[in-house]
């Protein structure tokens, strides 16, 4: 898991230098960490690509299992989702985009932008709004909980030892890293 996580932290310089998606994907799938951690011997390229795009859209540590579930749910709910991901990937490469803050304003294609927002929304909320209703892809790993996890627990999970909390208010600016 750890080595896989390291692999996932795509370095921006690599992207900037124009490292090809396929090359990245190749090194990614060959990672022994990945094979060991999730049991998938050959990760399909489409998921590798989805995780790469996700990593730029959501600059946090991303759980590959959740990624899988989001990918499947979005693939079911959106026509040609693979093409959308490819288009996003190409746009990122072509424009040497370094982060989501630069990407979104540059994305003039409304459909593409909406898809990007859907991917972001899925990672944060843990739900994908599909044709046949809501599909829950994550609860514990939903990123919206991590933003305040220094103060608030993920509901239903222990905060601390019994009665070990107190009334100390934490500054808003102390954003946890996750």
């Amino acid at each position: 898991m750890t080595s896989f996580r390291k692999e996932l932290k795509i370095n921006r310089r690599g992207l900037l230098l124009g490292m090809s998606a396929l090359a990245t994907a190749a090194s990614f799938t060959q990672s022994p960490g990945l094979a060991a951690s999730n049991g998938y011997i050959h990760e399909p390229d489409s998921i590798v690509q989805f995780m790469l795009v996700s990593k730029l859209l959501v600059p946090h540590e991303l759980d590959p299992f959740v990624g899988h579930k989001i990918y499947n749910a979005l693939s079911d709910s959106e026509e040609g989702f693979d093409n959308t991901v490819t288009a996003l990937q190409n746009f990122i490469m072509k424009n040497a985009v370094v982060d989501v803050e630069h990407l979104m304003p540059a994305l003039t294609d409304v459909a593409l932008k909406n898809s990007a927002l859907k991917i972001i929304s899925a990672w944060y909320s843990g739900v994908v709004h599909g044709k046949s209703g809501d599909r829950v892809v994550a609860f514990e790993e939903a990123l919206m909980f991590k933003v305040t996890n220094d103060v608030m627990t993920i509901p239903s999970y222990a905060k601390s030892a019994p009665n070990a909390w107190n009334a100390t208010a934490v500054p808003l600016l102390n954003m946890p890293s996750f």
């Binding site: 898991m1 759980d63 959740v66 579930k69 749910a73 829950v136 892809v137 994550a138 514990e140 790993e141």
Partner: peptide
């Protein structure tokens, strides 16, 4: 042993 997410094994389409 090591930390492994059990949530990953049960979440989704339940």
């Amino acid at each position: 042993g090591r930390p492994v997410s059990s949530a990953d094994r049960v979440r989704g389409d339940q």
